[in-house]
């Protein structure tokens, strides 16, 4: 599970460099996210543009990643591919997260 963190002025972008967030890696994903975002800024954007597939375990891990931030930071999502977007829509989780077309668009929105 390869995640990259990039710090911008007021935003941290965490990029998932993997094609899948599924049951096999969900716990590891959540743990890495905790380490990467523990002292993050107010706004954290999870860039999912390379992720082609998220199952319910992966979805749960993304929700857990948001919850473990507490009230100090907010987790947004960016770059949802079609199947990933579908999972969020069907479970209505798309209403819980702010979703951006791309990480670049999210950074532009929050740094201006």
């Amino acid at each position: 599970m390869d995640l990259t963190s990039t710090q911008f002025d007021k935003v941290q972008v965490v990029t998932v460099n993997a094609a899948r967030i599924d049951a096999a890696v969900a716990i590891r994903f959540k743990d890495i996210m905790r380490g990467m975002t523990e002292f993050g800024p107010e706004r954290i954007v999870l860039d999912l543009s390379q992720v082609e597939f998220v199952d319910s375990s992966g979805l749960g891990a993304i929700v857990a990643s948001m919850k473990q931030l507490g009230s100090s930071s907010k987790l947004d999502l960016a770059g949802l591919t079609p199947t990933v977007d579908k999972v969020f829509r069907l479970t209505r989780m798309d209403t819980i997260f702010a979703i951006h077309d791309s990480a670049d668009a999210a950074v532009a929105e929050y740094t201006h």
């Binding site: 199952d55 319910s56 375990s57 979805l59 749960g60 891990a61 929700v63 857990a64 948001m66 919850k67 009230s71 999972v87 069907l90 479970t91 209505r92 989780m93 209403t95 819980i96």
Partner: peptide, 16 residues
Amino acid sequence: IDVPLEDMPEGGFGWF
């Protein structure tokens, strides 16, 4: 999912 953040479900999506 109409619940406070800390109560947000992390599972139970599979059978749905």
